[in-house]
Amino acid sequence: MSAPLTHYLILSALLFCIGFAGAVGRRSAILVLIGIELMLNAANLNFIAFWRYGPHPEALTGVMFVLFSIAIAAAEAAVGLALVIATYRQRRTTRMDQLDTLKG
C-alpha cells in the first residue's frame, strides 16, 4: 500500500512554501524564477495525487492538466530567462534590489 493522500498533499505544501520563500526572499532574478517553478511543480503534484486518489481515475483529467501545465511552464521559463538575460545586458545586474528604476 502506498502512502496516504494527505502525505502527498503535505509534501506538496512543503515544496510550495520552499519555492515561495525563495521567490519572495532571494535577490537573484534567476532564483526567483526557480522558486516559481518549484511552486508550479508543487501544484502539479497535487493534481496527480488527487487524480490517483480520486473517485474517477479513468477520466485522466489530472494527467492532462499536468501535461499542459508542464508545456506552459516550459514557455514561461524560456521567456522569463530571456527577460533576465536582456535585463542583464542593459543593467549589468540580475539582482532584484538593484532593478529599482520604477520605484517611486
Binding site: F16, C17, A21
Partner: peptide, 13 residues
C-alpha cells in the same frame, strides 16, 4: 528580506 520571505512561507505552510 530572506527572513521575511521565510516567515511568510511558514505562515502560508
Amino acid at each position: 528580506s530572506w527572513w521575511m520571505g521565510a516567515g511568510a512561507a511558514a505562515l502560508v505552510l
